[in-house]
Design a protein around this nucleic acid. Sequence first.
DNA 1: ATCGCTCTCTACCGTTCGGTAGACAACCCC
DNA 2: GGGGTTGTCTACCGAACGGTAGAGAGCGAT
Lengths: 204, 204
Amino acid sequence: MPRTGGEERRSTLVEEAIRQFGREGYAGASLDDIARAVGVRKQTLLYYFSSKDALLEACLHAAGIRLAEVIAQALEGKEGYWERAEAVIHAVFGLASEWPEFPMFVREAGRLGPLAFERFADVLDPLRRRAVEFLQSGMDDGQVRKQDPAMLLFTLYTAVVGSLTEASVLNAVVGADKSRASLRRREREVVAFVRAALEPVPDR
Amino acid sequence: MPRTGGEERRSTLVEEAIRQFGREGYAGASLDDIARAVGVRKQTLLYYFSSKDALLEACLHAAGIRLAEVIAQALEGKEGYWERAEAVIHAVFGLASEWPEFPMFVREAGRLGPLAFERFADVLDPLRRRAVEFLQSGMDDGQVRKQDPAMLLFTLYTAVVGSLTEASVLNAVVGADKSRASLRRREREVVAFVRAALEPVPDR
DNA sequence: ATCGCTCTCTACCGTTCGGTAGACAACCCC
DNA sequence: GGGGTTGTCTACCGAACGGTAGAGAGCGAT
């Protein structure tokens, strides 16, 4: 009975679905649970999204847009190579800090196959191209070690996402807690790792 | 009717379960499908493993043992720092090449929470300790850039596993195929990345 | 020959899941 | 104030799932 109105309910459902798809996986999350967490019946959810698959697509699209916004905003006004690279990493870690299930959902999107992942990645394609050009120009300038820029971007992606999603592994290997401080520490570690991997080798 | 005998059937079921848990996720894989893929009824599977959870535990244990074997064998007779590090990466990539769902299953194990992951990681704990000592001694000798060795191991883990499991991402970012050649290329890329990240910085 | 053990099967149960049908209430417009 | 639209609900369905009960086939030992 308490009517919340169309678009707001829609986006609330998508956000909750991203949380649960990320935490439980697509197959493991149920429409009942997602709806209940929003304070609504499953049939109301199905009023907005005609099927579980349609809900997933909406989540993929929304996640892509959200990440693109966050990264684009982080890049505003940044000029230097390291400034820009670190700003992106910092922005992604910030998003993960306030929305821990977000990187989990992104990883789940990759797991669901190329078709699902494209829905997410399509929105990010302009940024992807900018990143590749950025890395390429860094190599041309001698600020970045020469290598395949696309492959390098992929490796950077896995390092960041892995660091944000493999909490169980982190716990087993390092014995880390889940606090904010631990997340910041991981961010510093990733930045240092990436920086070391990018820097050109002066000798040897 | 065709009796295959106890232990062999048991391990066949575990291998198939690892495949399907890795491909579909724990929640997404069904006992019916796993049993059918082995050519047997679900109730036969439940004769060997009293529940889905018990089957998962057997898979986690078996996966841990398998990976420990593969790594230990790869280390035999290797002496140099890079020789040993690269041998481990090469061994893991080799395992992933002949059993693509294996790294997927490992990642799924991490997703299922610390309790599940411990079942897998417990077997690997001696190797984990050796790796940390190895990295620490490398730092003491000046062959590896100084940093927290446990955290470094975690970052290396995410780089390797990510590179082996994020096929959809790789496809979206690089446009890569799934061929053997592509896998070898990724291995070279990971080795180069890790090596660059490990090397001590001579200046700057 | 038969007893007992190992292994695999058919049959079935209760629950949960994604999805459908349709009643009904609130709101807007005229 | 009646009609259409939008949003939320109750009730229900068929399929799939994890798991139980129990029959029976093959086989080795006595």
